[in-house]
Nucleic acid binder design. Structure first.
Lengths: 187, 187
DNA sequence: TTAATTTTTTGATTTTGGTCAAAGGATTTT
DNA sequence: AAAATCCTTTGACCAAAATCAAAAAATTAA
């Protein structure tokens, strides 16, 4: 649990009570790679925190498999389009390595907000963090060439090339794997 | 003020006290077109609500002017990359029509959250709305062709072509204005 | 109303990245 | 260890959009 406590520490000052209330909403699991934590079309009720391992969010559009997000140790992920709306999601979540995952029941968390405003504050701040990540992603897509996008991804995930296969990285960058292979040959 | 009250009504149940506290943070102004509400490099402390008119968020990258967001009557806009971080923004905000703008002091708003959790809740829900808008924008860019993106934009802003010049729309769609002109000729 | 400016369209050409296909490596399974 | 599968690279060709340039249309200012 220690990575999760570190992560949340940026957003909340845990009292013993708050800590107990929060961690009662969590379940921890060891899950083998390739497992799907979530499938598109379902409604998402959980936020997943990666204690160990690597996961991706992706979607399928007329046969194409497009990765839209990665999460490694110390990061959260969810099908937020569904989590925030209660509607079925466009996204899937899949583990790319054997992982240790803490899943937080977001519906139960929401139900604590009236009693524990500190939890609602943490949720707000984490939503802001998610917003800023998306904003960065859009800047990347709109302002930079594929080569620049690849280099910037490597800054955020220095070891991604040893952990994640080329095709997933390419689709995250919005290019084909052939193009990424050529970019890589150049740099 | 009535558009703003309608907008906020989706996120908060105003008591007379809350309403007074909130609207004390607001200033309303009539501002001529082409005025900049905000310039990149500055730190943003306000959220702007468009009561009347049209505005865009854009940034400049080695000479290119790229529009990243539009807001018309009933919508909010801000340089959120700065608003949420306190760092200088990459974005500019400019009015494209003579407008009536309500500006909300976000720093003062934040300072009310401890005393009025309902305000923090509204802020959280509006942040979620912003997140979902960005998520939609990314899906648009990654999944659809320029022609499809244009048609989808028209669904959200049916009258945009009569109000906003082609170049701004093109850069929002991630294409050149020549390409948009040809797309338009086809449809 | 005319002149000036800005916006939009059209054309020719170039560039970038996509597609299709196949070969080479690496990893996993039997 | 061999076979099978999966992942990555390379090549030839193609398509979409960018770029450069200029003309036409619309808007604004004089």
């Amino acid at each position: 649990m220690s990575l999760l406590k570190d992560y949340l520490g940026k957003f909340i000052n845990f009292t013993p009570t708050l800590e107990r209330v929060f961690f009662e909403l969590c379940t921890i699991q060891e899950i083998p790679k390739k497992t799907h934590l979530f499938k598109s079309g379902d409604v998402c009720h959980h936020v997943h925190f990666i204690e160990k391992g690597f996961a991706r969010v992706y979607y399928l559009l007329d046969g194409r498999d497009v990765t839209s997000w990665f999460a490694q140790e110390g990061q959260v992920m969810s099908a937020k389009d569904s989590l925030f709306t209660g509607k079925p999601s466009d996204y899937n979540i899949q583990l790319l390595e054997d992982s240790k995952v803490i899943s937080i029941n977001y519906r139960k968390l929401e139900s604590k907000f009236d009693e524990y405003p500190a939890l609602e504050r943490a949720a707000r701040l984490i939503t802001i963090e998610s917003y800023l990540q998306l904003d960065d992603r859009i800047k990347n897509i709109l302002f930079y060439t594929p080569e620049e996008r690849y280099l910037r991804l490597l800054e955020n995930y220095p070891n991604i090339t040893t952990r994640i296969s080329l095709g997933y990285i390419a689709s995250y960058l919005g290019i084909t794997q052939e193009t990424l292979s050529r970019v890589r040959a150049r740099v």
